[in-house]
Design a protein around this nucleic acid. Structure first.
Length: 290
DNA sequence: TATGAGCGA
């Protein structure tokens, strides 16, 4: 920057933009836009302070491209004559195409606690009671009890043998023959003899190989978790706990892997891993309680 | 702050 005697009156460079730049603009006459006229000539008159603090007038003349105008649909032309409303009433023609509204709009989440959708609850009619009245047919597939609980809520669920053991596995010749053997029913690959591969554990429940991730930053969402964990192997589910009232992340989540070994590797690699300024905690999850 | 939501033969 050139230095002369006047320079001492000036603010230092670090102060220029913040304090002196824009703030005095309100002293200037408003920007004027004239046209475009029938020849497409548009004039913009603006006022600014120059470096010495003098008010200067800047006139910009441009030709609006006729092509652009011709592209406007009839409807668009018509809309230009609409009366402005709201804050836009005070705007110059063409000064701004969009407005920032300060109007508060309250969004109602239909499933939110306390909202209308919730009001039907609490009238005392549980599913089980409706079932007893014949409205819902609810039979537990694990214990066979009627009208009491769904299979997933069965109190004997964890005592029950895995589904696979209920099905008789065909012997090799029947399975490979397909329809020719036995009753001719389809045998899924997982049920065929020799399907079990040593070292590869079957996925019986969706909640297996579940990894808990804590100390997530507030704006980490499920896609982010997936991106991070999928490098270790097939991920069957990701979940980030969200506060139902505020909608913000509660800072922890779960990732389920198809294969246990992948989950193990993810835990070993990512536990203590810095992510989004935070140190992740990655551990085996204890099974969900419900 | 700190271990998940909701669906339904």
């Amino acid at each position: 920057m050139a230095s002369n005697g006047l320079a001492t009156n000036k603010l230092r460079w670090g102060e220029l933009e913040e304090d002196d730049g824009e703030d005095l603009d309100f002293l200037l006459p408003p920007r004027q836009v004239i046209g475009p006229d029938e020849n497409g000539i548009k004039k913009v008159i603006e006022y600014k302070f120059d470096d010495e603090g003098n008010k200067v007038k800047i006139t910009t003349t441009t030709r609006v491209r006729k092509l652009a105008k011709a592209r406007l649909s009839k409807r668009a032309v018509e809309r230009r004559s609409w009366a402005k409303f709201g804050d836009a009433v005070h705007e110059d023609v063409g000064a701004r195409l969009t407005m920032v509204s300060t109007e508060e709009i309250l969004l109602e989440r239909p499933r939110a606690p306390g909202s209308k959708a919730e009001e039907n609850k609490g009238s005392g009619d549980s599913l089980a009671q409706m079932a007893k009245g014949g409205a819902v047919l609810m039979v537990c597939r694990t214990c066979g009890k009627k009208g009491d609980h769904w299979t997933s809520k069965c109190p004997y669920k964890d005592l029950a043998a895995p589904v696979e053991t209920f099905v008789d596995k065909p012997t090799g010749s029947e399975a490979s023959a397909g329809a020719a053997g036995g009753k001719g029913s389809y045998v899924p690959p997982s049920m065929r003899a020799g399907a079990e591969r040593p070292g590869v554990e079957m996925r019986r429940r969706n909640d297996e190989n579940s990894v808990r991730v804590t100390n997530l930053s507030e704006d980490t969402r499920e896609p982010d978790l997936l991106e991070l964990f999928r490098t270790f192997g097939a991920v069957s589910r990701v979940y980030v706990a969200i506060d139902q009232k505020t909608g913000v992340s509660r800072g922890f989540g779960f990732v389920n892997f198809v294969n246990k070994e992948d989950a193990e590797r993810a835990i070993n690699k990512l536990n203590g891993y810095g992510y989004d300024n935070l140190i992740l905690r990655v551990e085996w999850a204890t099974p969900r309680t419900n």
